[in-house]
Computed example of a mutant assay.
Amino acid sequence: MLSRLAGSVFHVGSAVERAEVVARMLDVYVARGEPAGVEHDRAVAAELRAVAAELRAVVGAAGPANDPDRASTIDSLALDRHEPASIASAVAVARDNARRAREVVSTELWDCLNVTRSRMPRKVAPDRAHEFLAWVRERSALAIGVVEADASHDEVWEFFTLGRALQRCSVTARLLASGLLDPESGASWTTALRACGAGEAFQRGRDHHTPGPEDAAAF
């Protein structure tokens, strides 16, 4: 495979994974996560800003966090097309790189990414944030499923999977090193496992509901 095609397929996999990861983290830590309560409460607003700043560091967002509320945080990290770490940016990167690699990318994957890009909204109401983020995760899962089900496990599959895997390794490592995680708090580990998409997998086969830090970290 030509290096330019390999690079484009790699970036498609990385961007698809980034969209899914950022959507899950926004859902867990901002849309449905703590802090809960009235947005204008100063303590709640301050805690939300701290969470947003840590989340930006985890997903590699550029620039300082200045989001005053949940809606602004979601607008910035989900819909801002000028923010390289946002969902909208990741979807655009995936689609553009798939276009550059059309000679090796399947029609099904191209159609999936093209439709996702065309349906990305410019604005999302705060009470629809969870629904939107779930849609992003579903579209990412569809793209991954198309590659896994319809593509031969050749170099295209390998570079796509490599892009996904390295993106996931990077974000997971940043999460474990971030202030979003309190190493001594079982509840914090539960939230982190959910943010990694590993909450149910961790609990399956275990009798306790709150993970111990060592067990969760090892998992």
Rank of each mutant, 00 (worst) to 15 (best):
L2P: 05
S3Q: 13
R4Y: 07
R4L: 10
A6M: 14
G7I: 01
G7W: 02
G7K: 06
G7E: 05
V12Y: 04
G13L: 06
V16K: 00
E17W: 05
R18P: 00
R18H: 04
V21I: 12
A23W: 01
L26D: 01
L26Q: 00
Y29G: 02
Y29W: 10
R32W: 09
G33S: 06
P35I: 03
G37N: 09
G37K: 15
H40S: 15
D41C: 08
R42F: 12
A43E: 13
A46Q: 14
A46N: 12
L48F: 10
A50H: 11
A50M: 11
V51D: 08
V51Y: 03
V51H: 03
A53D: 07
E54L: 07
A57C: 12
V59N: 02
A61K: 00
A61T: 01
A61G: 02
A62R: 10
A65Q: 05
D67I: 04
P68G: 08
D69W: 04
D75S: 08
S76Q: 13
P84K: 09
I87G: 00
A88M: 09
A88I: 00
S89P: 03
S89L: 13
A90Y: 01
A90P: 00
A90L: 06
A90R: 00
V91D: 01
A92M: 10
A92I: 00
R95Q: 10
A101C: 07
R102I: 10
E103A: 15
V104P: 01
V104A: 06
V104I: 14
V104R: 03
V105L: 01
T107F: 13
E108H: 07
C112Y: 01
L113S: 02
V115M: 12
T116S: 10
R117I: 09
S118I: 13
A125V: 07
A125D: 13
L133H: 01
L133R: 03
V136E: 02
R137L: 05
A141G: 14
L142C: 09
D150W: 13
A151L: 14
A151D: 14
H153M: 13
E155R: 10
V156R: 01
G163W: 01
L166Q: 14
L166H: 11
R168F: 02
T172F: 04
A173L: 09
L175K: 04
L181V: 11
P183V: 10
T191W: 08
L193N: 03
A195E: 02
A195T: 00
C196D: 04
G199H: 09
A201I: 15
Q203Y: 15
H209N: 14
T210H: 11
P211W: 03
P213G: 10
P213S: 11
